[in-house]
């Protein structure tokens, strides 16, 4: 059990910046998700914590001790890889036992610990098989069992679910959540999938281009995105973002006019709102012709062209409109988020 501190952590390859001065404290027992598009530096950050990648600057502390110069095996961590990293020539049993064997843990303990780990992830029936004879989900559970068998201080998981099919992903996700609840081991989890992040995390770190964009609970990030990147990355569909002008508390853009922003300085701003917060009405702040209609099942999604962007609005599932037919949407000021047009940073409303 240990907390992790990242102090001014940077990674550069030549002039390319992988991770930019990152500061983060991960509490003991916390489930932290690093979220971002590919190439954002989340995996690099994890690999630096694991010791698979050198740091360019800054320190990594696990349980208060600086580990920069320790080899991965001496950091007391376990890692689950995207493509599992199983040993193809060993059986499931030997795979799970491997960390015990190479660390010189007394032989007598091995069997019991392997059996306990395999029971935790329900692998008892497959112990004598080789990885090649397992399904993707089973392989991932072997990787999990191999991680937990040693009781490390920290779990690192690098996109562990992205090679699984959609259905298996949901059940394995639940299993990981349950496992963390049971073991309460500090866990860092890398993903590009915001649903995984939202469902698993105690806290989410959103990253882009090597820089941390926002750190917060899933709800925080969803409800109060710190900038346009987070706003556009989180949520499905992503938040609608419309560039326009604020004049005397009224936001205006092509086919958009939203009043009610008292106390906001005049000038260009970016306005954001979520599709599910707006609703179709006879008249409203947005009035534009339909660009496309999609039936989602429990609702339908109307997309209109307004403010130079495609704007999605959630409607009842029986709502029907022809393409090109003008509709209106009610978008009150209190569901809107405002961002600085130049920096993209969130503008707090008074």
């Amino acid at each position: 059990m240990a907390d992790i501190q990242l102090q001014n952590l940077s990674k550069r390859w030549g002039t390319f910046v992988g991770v930019q001065t990152m500061n983060l404290h991960i509490a003991d027992g916390e489930f932290l998700v690093l979220l971002g598009p590919s190439g954002c530096g989340k995996t690099t950050t994890m690999r630096m914590i694991a010791g698979l990648e050198d740091t360019t600057e800054g320190d990594i502390l696990i349980g208060g001790a600086r580990v920069n110069d320790l080899e991965p095996k001496d950091r007391d961590i376990a890692m689950v890889f995207q493509s599992y990293g199983l040993y193809p020539t060993m059986t499931v049993y030997e795979n799970i036992r491997f960390p015990l064997k190479v660390r010189g843990i007394p032989q007598a303990e091995h069997h019991e610990r392997v059996m306990r780990a395999s029971a935790t992830v329900e692998l008892d029936d497959f112990l004598q098989r080789k990885p090649a004879a397992l399904s993707g989900g089973q392989r991932q559970r072997v990787a999990l069992a191999r991680a937990i068998v040693r009781k490390p201080k920290v779990f690192l998981m690098d996109e562990p679910l992205s090679n699984l099919d959609a259905k298996l992903r949901v059940s394995t996700r639940a299993q990981i959540k349950n496992l963390h609840h049971e073991l309460k081991t500090t866990t860092i989890y890398v993903t590009h999938d915001q649903i995984e992040a939202m469902t698993l995390a105690d806290r989410v770190v959103v990253m882009n281009k090597g820089a941390v964009q926002q750190v917060g609970t899933p709800l925080d990030i969803y409800d109060r995105p710190a900038n346009t990147f987070v706003a556009g990355f989180i949520g499905s569909p992503a938040m609608n973002l419309i560039e326009g002008r604020m004049t005397g508390g009224v936001f205006e853009a092509d086919r958009v006019r939203i009043p009610g922003f008292g106390g906001i300085a005049d000038g260009p701003v970016t306005l954001g709102f979520r599709a599910e917060d707006a609703r179709i009405a006879d008249t409203g702040e947005i009035a534009a012709p339909v660009y496309s209609m999609e039936l989602l099942g429990d609702a339908s999604m109307a997309t209109v062209q307004a403010g130079g962007a495609l704007v999605a609005i959630k409607a009842a599932k029986d709502f029907m409109a022809q393409i090109g037919q003008p509709i209106a949407a009610h978008v009150p000021a209190d569901i809107c988020h405002l961002f600085d047009a130049a920096t993209g940073q969130r503008i707090e409303r008074p």
Partner: peptide, 8 residues
């Protein structure tokens, strides 16, 4: 591939 602590 850069050399790392692990590879050193």
């Amino acid at each position: 591939m850069s050399t790392t602590v692990a590879d050193r």
